[in-house]
Simulated assay, not measured.
Amino acid sequence: MENEPMAPGDQAPAGTPGTGENVCPQCEGSGEVDGKTCPTCEGSGTVIEGIGGG
């Protein structure tokens, strides 16, 4: 999974410490927008984002 290319909505590559999967904010997890593949998550329905901390 670490060698997978990043989707446009990803903030970091998969497996990066301090990150995790979240539901794509554009397609709300469906993988589609207006009947087409979501451009933000590239159809996966998830994006990699930073988690908590501070």
Rank of each mutant, 00 (worst) to 15 (best):
M1N: 13
E2K: 13
N3G: 10
P5T: 11
P5Y: 07
M6W: 04
P8T: 09
D10C: 03
D10H: 00
D10Y: 00
D10L: 01
Q11R: 13
A12D: 07
A12C: 14
A12I: 03
P13F: 09
P13S: 14
P13C: 02
P13I: 06
A14M: 07
A14C: 06
G15C: 11
G15M: 08
G15V: 04
G15H: 08
G15S: 12
T16H: 08
P17G: 08
G18C: 15
G18M: 05
G20P: 04
G20L: 08
G20Q: 12
E21A: 11
E21F: 13
E21T: 04
E21I: 03
N22S: 14
N22I: 09
N22W: 02
C24G: 01
C24H: 01
C24Y: 00
C24V: 02
C24N: 02
E28Q: 15
G29Q: 02
G29L: 00
G29P: 03
S30K: 11
G31E: 08
G31I: 07
E32C: 03
V33R: 06
K36F: 09
K36I: 06
T37Y: 03
T37P: 06
T37Q: 10
T37R: 07
C38E: 00
C38F: 03
P39T: 04
T40Q: 13
T40K: 11
T40Y: 05
C41F: 08
G43V: 00
S44M: 02
G45Q: 05
T46N: 14
T46H: 07
I48V: 15
I48M: 11
E49Q: 13
E49F: 01
E49M: 09
G50N: 05
G50M: 06
I51S: 12
G52T: 07
G52P: 00
G52A: 10
G53R: 04
G53D: 03
G53V: 05
G54E: 14
